[in-house]
Write a protein that binds this DNA or RNA. Sequence first.
DNA 1: TTGAAAGCGGTACCAA
DNA 2: TTGGTACCGCTTTCAA
Lengths: 337, 337
Amino acid sequence: MKATIYDVAREAGVSIAAVSQVMNGKGKISEERRAEILKVMEKLNYQPSVIASALTGKKTYTLGLLVPDISNPFFAEIARAVEDQGHNLGYSLVICSTDNKDERVERYLSLLQQKSVDGMIIGTGMDNKEMLTPLMERSIPVVMIAREMPDLAVHTVVVDDFVGGKLAAEHLLKLGHVNMAILAEHTKVTSSRERVRGFMSTLTEAGIQLPEERVRNCRYTVEDGKRQAIELLEKSAAARPTALFCCNDMLAIGALQAAKQLKLRVPEDISVIGFDNTILASVTDPPLTTIAQPIEPMGKHVVDLLILELKKKSQAKQRVVMRPELIIRQSTTVPAK
Amino acid sequence: MKATIYDVAREAGVSIAAVSQVMNGKGKISEERRAEILKVMEKLNYQPSVIASALTGKKTYTLGLLVPDISNPFFAEIARAVEDQGHNLGYSLVICSTDNKDERVERYLSLLQQKSVDGMIIGTGMDNKEMLTPLMERSIPVVMIAREMPDLAVHTVVVDDFVGGKLAAEHLLKLGHVNMAILAEHTKVTSSRERVRGFMSTLTEAGIQLPEERVRNCRYTVEDGKRQAIELLEKSAAARPTALFCCNDMLAIGALQAAKQLKLRVPEDISVIGFDNTILASVTDPPLTTIAQPIEPMGKHVVDLLILELKKKSQAKQRVVMRPELIIRQSTTVPAK
DNA sequence: TTGAAAGCGGTACCAA
DNA sequence: TTGGTACCGCTTTCAA
């Protein structure tokens, strides 16, 4: 069996209060007693129970992370960043893949509460934003990453999606494209909406109009990206776009596959630009030009905000917007004339 | 504040014991009381504290998963499979990325113990296998996935690496290759060793010898795979291998990049075959022929074994070996003559 | 059936 | 300085 505080106390011939004090560095203990207790703890290989300690109102040192799917490289990379910073600060991470289903979100939220996690990091969308209010009422710290719920007072760390869309547009514009299309996510995904908005507004400034049918909403899968891209591209050279802005790397990969299937060369016949700069973007062929999210700093920052909040409650909620960056690889070039 | 069992008891005018009983479906409670209590629980939105319950000796319904790096697609996919099956059975998952560092493994092992997880799933290697014995002594259930420690009595779920290597070799042999090379992982990684062994033994059976310098040990990164592949490939057409067996998809991607840099065409000039069949294999260009591990069934199975063990202790430890499968895509073909 | 009470492993207050 | 002790929220035994 595991040694308990009682075992240590008995073995050291002191009270459990004394043991507790040396663990927490509180109270006054004579040097010799402290040394003796430490020695016994060592000898018994004593590991204090986080469970017991949590029951007395202390923290569980556990955080929950909700993402749509941990097997999706973007969220896996976020998870790693969050895990690392959490670990630095002494916290463990429970992962929760929601598949973007409200029912799963709800289940996980409830589970995490029952397990008394110290805080939650939300990186998943949800239709019903009311789901978070019970948490706030119970003052369980919540922060958001890569997603936002504007009318919720929580710390949020996102990339500047509008600027991201703008960067993509500027890049394509500079290359000389005028005839473009967009593979977007579902319209309820704010980040995607903003990316589209940034992209479109830049086109508009350049005097270019994008017909409505050139903006396709896709599910977050390679397959759907491919399907929609095919619809966009299976036209005569004159009728099809020369460049495709995809709101995430998965969709861009779908676009790449669509091009291949249609025997179109990337980038000569069709330029493709992605978003996120996950590992996927670097292994495709051709490697994907994409808009990078600073995933690691974002994860680190969101954890810092969460820990800050659960230490000293109540402070102005901040919305941290990080700057995206254009990563030029080889999936974009000047349009064929 | 959160409602406690006392709140429910008071509100319902019963003892906390009664409330506890209806929660656990134990003891005898009259139908009316049970209904009343249920109603009050509902009304107060009562959520029992897993922490408190765990302290009384019940489970925490939390599992720990140790992998080298959750941002690596292979392990992210494993994590997802494990998470799903755990979730089905009522367990949450704490992820621990070890970077294959014994020091991190140790830290996480200790942390998970302090948090009283019900069991641990090890998918990471470790140099010092002694690290697990303290767990066994404390009879904390441990199972392994995708890795093994032969002299450890734990349930293990792995793919048949030897057969995997064999499948790869047979495929290349059938295509007509005689001049091959291997990108392996570090020799301390048993799975990689077995893959190499399976591959080599099949070549030997076919009367083909592989010179020692044709087997390169790499770190688990695209970069290192690329570096080593370049060394293998930067020779005259006559002196270089016509096919490369890579012990995981990451290395295979490195090989693809090496070929590209050396202006060799895949598969015409050089065939490349990977291992794992992660999402990466489907997005490269050309798409990677690879040996698939049945990740999802493996994850499911390992969780089942773990749960089984922590329910009814003590049973013969089993080693489940799943069959790998050759997935032919477009990175392999007949050798140029 | 029902409920009083003794833990589980700590924390923290307070008296000695 | 020390240690006794009342919780924390829940489970379980046992007497009523």
